[in-house]
Amino acid sequence: MEEGPPRHGHAVAVATEVFVAHRNLLFTVAYEMLGSAADAEDVLQESWLRWAEVDLETVRDGRSYLIRVVTRQALNRLRTMARRKEAYVGPWLPEPLLTSPDVAEDVELAESLSMALMVVLETLTPTERAVFVLREVFDVGYDEIARSVDKSEAAVRQIAHRARKHVEARQPRQPASAAQARTALASLQRALETGDRQAFLDVLAPDVVYIGDGGGIRQAALRPVVGADRIVRMVMGGLAKSGVIPTAEPSLVNGMPALVFRLDGELDGVLAARVGSTGITGLYYVRNPEKLTRLGADTVVVRS
């Protein structure tokens, strides 16, 4: 990285202006690589410290340079997060973000942010994830990605191909529209509120997978639950045992329809879903309170 002596005054103001102009994009890049808004914010802070020392006269394209810095910091952070996840209690799900309707209108961005795809990205290596995100979501050129991940362009092309095949094998493109997803979640919401087991079953695909994330702080299934019958028994049994029916509020989370649940007015969790031609094929319930801090206001995410 081209670094020079500390700068002050006008140079710092220019550096700040460039960084702020791209901040939402840089946050989105970091979040898609990490699945954690808190870690993405840390990466932006680390990236700013490095950017503040750069001689801007050596930078031809501020956007590309900043993406490169953020990518390198995110790769470092991914490796430290891997150790945290090894000690995590139960499944680890991405930190949900409340997003605005314009994110949902950008189908490619919404799909890339969806809980279902973010879960699949967790199965890639750090470098594969960085290459996939930069190429598939942000359309960064192979030459620039190569500089960001310290690989040859030929190697990056191979990594991109391998990562794309890996993702497509585990996550076919979303066959249901946002409207269909909203309808499915509305049916699920009614089934839960009325205690209608059959209606709950009817909205689920037979091979649906449920993943809960309580982080060891709140109760959640310690491993994925597979199959509509098993999921309905678990959820309905839990509601009957507690004697309390949570209220559900339809929301847009990570660009996709979701339900935000509250118990006695207190935030309990976020339920995101993947909807296919046979019904809901994936349910993702984040209850860990440390991951529910981004639900008070929309988070701005962009692709450019």
Rank of each mutant, 00 (worst) to 15 (best):
residue 118 M to G: 09
residue 10 H to Q: 13
residue 293 T to W: 03
residue 226 V to H: 15
residue 90 G to T: 06
residue 120 V to F: 11
residue 213 D to C: 12
residue 111 E to V: 00
residue 89 V to E: 03
residue 275 V to M: 10
residue 42 D to G: 10
residue 147 R to G: 01
residue 220 A to S: 03
residue 74 A to T: 12
residue 6 P to I: 09
residue 162 R to A: 06
residue 94 P to A: 11
residue 242 S to P: 08
residue 207 D to F: 09
residue 182 R to T: 11
residue 262 R to H: 04
residue 71 T to M: 12
residue 56 L to T: 15
residue 7 R to A: 10
residue 291 K to H: 08
residue 159 I to A: 01
residue 46 E to L: 15
residue 165 K to C: 07
residue 191 A to S: 15
residue 40 A to M: 12
residue 141 G to I: 01
residue 61 D to N: 15
residue 207 D to R: 14
residue 238 G to Q: 05
residue 131 V to D: 04
residue 165 K to A: 14
residue 244 V to L: 06
residue 250 P to F: 06
residue 12 V to M: 09
residue 299 T to Y: 02
residue 4 G to M: 07
residue 288 N to F: 04
residue 287 R to I: 03
residue 255 G to I: 05
residue 235 V to G: 02
residue 183 T to L: 13
residue 191 A to K: 11
residue 152 S to M: 00
residue 58 T to I: 08
residue 294 R to Q: 15
residue 13 A to S: 10
residue 232 V to R: 10
residue 241 K to Q: 09
residue 115 M to W: 00
residue 133 V to S: 01
residue 26 L to F: 07
residue 222 L to A: 11
residue 119 V to R: 10
residue 128 E to Q: 11
residue 182 R to K: 14
residue 269 G to A: 06
residue 93 L to P: 07
residue 39 D to P: 07
residue 64 S to H: 10
residue 190 R to Y: 08
residue 240 A to P: 00
residue 39 D to I: 11
residue 213 D to E: 05
residue 205 A to K: 14
residue 193 E to N: 14
residue 251 S to A: 15
residue 199 A to P: 06
residue 114 S to C: 08
residue 143 D to K: 07
residue 189 Q to A: 14
residue 105 E to G: 09
residue 292 L to M: 06
residue 100 S to A: 14
residue 163 A to S: 09
residue 214 G to F: 05
residue 1 M to A: 11
residue 145 I to R: 00
residue 111 E to T: 06
residue 99 T to M: 05
residue 92 W to R: 04
residue 247 T to S: 12
residue 280 I to D: 03
residue 255 G to F: 06
residue 42 D to I: 08
residue 222 L to P: 02
residue 229 D to S: 11
residue 12 V to W: 05
residue 101 P to A: 04
residue 153 E to Y: 01
residue 221 A to K: 05
residue 257 P to A: 05
residue 297 A to K: 13
residue 129 R to D: 02
residue 172 P to N: 10
residue 268 D to Q: 15
residue 222 L to Y: 00
residue 92 W to V: 08
residue 132 F to R: 00
residue 218 R to H: 03
residue 6 P to L: 12
residue 287 R to F: 04
residue 45 Q to L: 14
residue 190 R to M: 13
residue 5 P to H: 09
residue 114 S to M: 08
residue 71 T to C: 09
residue 210 Y to T: 01
residue 279 G to R: 07
residue 292 L to T: 07
residue 180 Q to P: 12
